[in-house]
Amino acid sequence: MTAKVTYSDVEVGTELPARSFPVNRATLVRYAGASGDFNPIHWNEKFAKEVGLPDVIAHGMFTMAEAIRVVTDWIGDPGAVVEYGVRFTRPVVVPNDDHGAVIEVSGKVAAKLDDNTVRVDLTATSAGQKVLGMSRAVVRLA
């Protein structure tokens, strides 16, 4: 495993390049197929509203998959991720319009740990609201 970021080059507070990830209904249908999660709250507006949601929402695991890209794009080698966890605090609501939704993700180094590993804390928002809580990854740097 060969991260392109060196442990000695990062400090607590080092910011990772932030990213924006657009998501629309087609994205969700595609993710449903690839992941095998066909829960209708992710593609059927009528069903979503019947169970009390404002509209179709993104798969939490889709948001989790996007958020870690800030880390894996930074280090280059996705195999250098040692731990990754999130709390799903709010749904990403995806309207059926020309825009869909956008998931904004930023991250910074929160702690330097043993064995060349660091903890990165991620922030993910959509429509100005935090959608993930306790979003943390531990990665092994070079």
Binding site: T27, I68, G79
Partner: peptide, 29 residues
């Protein structure tokens, strides 16, 4: 592709090997 991630470690065996993996790896989630 469904999560829009073009990291070559997921699709290109040589790129994965260059990172020290025996074959293509899967995204973390």
């Amino acid at each position: 592709e469904a999560v829009g991630d073009a990291n070559p470690a997921y699709t290109d065996t040589e790129a994965a090997k260059a990172l020290g993996h025996p074959d293509v790896i899967a995204p973390p989630t």
